[in-house]
Amino acid sequence: MNVERATSRILLLGGSLAVALMLVGLVALEVHAARTAHPLDVAHVVENREAGRSIGVFVSLPQIARALGRWPPDPVAVITAGIVVLLATPATALVVALIAFERLGDHAYAAICAGLLVALVCGFLLNVAG
């Protein structure tokens, strides 16, 4: 298994899937806004955090899952699912690199990948706690 190729493929796949979800969600959001005669007025919405919340910002995975479970799915939840896929892509690529190095018998780099994954988890927990 070629480590570079495997890692590159995951980065490209993750990025493409994320963008596809975001685009579908954004188009659905625009269509919904046009139908309900309530334009998004994004230029106003993005000006401050409180105004931004008026279109709904998801901040946890259970919230996204619940919104995606309804029919039709909430367009903002679809966009946010894309964002989550994008944010998770580097860590996924690291897992794939770890497996690829292990298969090559390069235990030193498999250990480095494992160490980095542990550090990412620690960083995440530290950030959340902080």
Binding site: M22, G25, V46, R49, I55, I83
Partner: peptide, 13 residues
Amino acid sequence: GDIHPVIATPVAL
């Protein structure tokens, strides 16, 4: 909640 969907989408794309 700092990653706003409407800003993040065009930026990411």
